[in-house]
């Protein structure tokens, strides 16, 4: 069984993101980029399935600029087998990403797609569900556990009220939540090996997908900043302030 994993290159989660003064977006110059953390979890899950003998090949796909090759190499170093970069300098919206992933999934005859639940830059939380729709596959979103058995994917999902378990006929789309696993660090030998693994570079046009945006960003602003308040000496003073100053208790 072939597994498709989507990995996005995003500003590293530790970076303090700043809005550009001209309101055109956020500052990306001299900023560290990394693999979207939910996609690291997706790669890790695919590698574990492979190690357990449940899958044959892991194909990682990224849509983005030339530098996304580094993101794909990281995924290869974690244990993915081969990579596809669909190269474009333009920001690609989740709908277009889902269309491209659909084309790859069909071309490759993939039976399972593991997608991050959310990219931490656009915070859209859409792509996996859109991919499932376009492929007409069932979806197991926000997964904290995945078990493949009898041709089905049994998925435990993190929902607002707690946990839900569903059983999906394969092929299916899974989106990862934080508790699915703890991604490994790639070892030095594996990083070296990853350099020799195949990485194909294509373009959206190769798939005949129109990636022009549907949403126009008119401006990007910094949110209202909260100011630090006052220090209280101890629990007694805190209680007093909450009661008589803030009047919230």
């Amino acid at each position: 069984m072939k597994v498709l994993v989507a990995v996005k290159r995003v500003i590293d989660y530790n970076v303090r993101v700043r809005v550009r003064a001209d309101g055109s977006g956020v500052e990306t110059a001299n900023v560290k980029f990394s693999m979207n953390p939910f996609d690291e979890i997706a790669v890790e899950e695919a590698v574990r399935l492979k190690e357990a003998g449940a899958t044959a090949e892991i194909i990682v796909v990224s849509i983005g600029p030339a530098q996304a090759q580094e993101t794909l190499r990281s995924a290869l170093a974690m244990g993915a087998d081969r990579a596809i970069l669909i190269q474009t300098e333009d920001a690609v919206e989740p709908l277009a990403v889902a269309k491209l992933l659909t084309a790859v999934a069909r071309r490759e005859g993939v039976e399972l797609a593991i997608i991050g639940k959310q990219a931490i830059d656009d915070d859209a939380n859409q792509t996996g569900q859109m991919l499932a729709a376009l492929l007409d596959w069932p979806q197991g979103t926000f997964a904290s556990k995945l078990v493949l058995e009898d041709g089905r994917a049994v998925v435990t999902r993190e929902i607002d009220g707690g946990l839900e378990t569903v059983s999906l006929a394969l092929p299916a789309v899974i989106t990862t939540d934080l508790r699915l696993n703890a991604p490994r660090y790639a070892s030095l030998p594996n990083i070296m090996k990853a350099k020799k693994k195949p990485l194909d570079i294509l373009t959206p046009a190769d798939f005949g997908v129109d990636v022009s945006p549907r949403l126009v960003t008119l401006k990007v602003e910094a949110p209202r900043q909260r100011k630090a308040g006052v220090k209280v000496a101890d629990a007694a003073q805190l209680f007093d302030k909450l009661k008589h100053e803030a009047k919230v208790i």
């Binding site: 989740p94 939380n125 859409q126």
Partner: peptide, 23 residues
């Protein structure tokens, strides 16, 4: 924009060929 809506609506948007506006 909670786990219920986030699960369903992108699927709707994709079939309508619309970019969802999240959150």
């Amino acid at each position: 924009a909670n786990t219920f809506g986030k699960n369903v609506l992108p699927r709707v948007a994709a079939l309508l060929d619309v970019a969802q506006i999240s959150d």
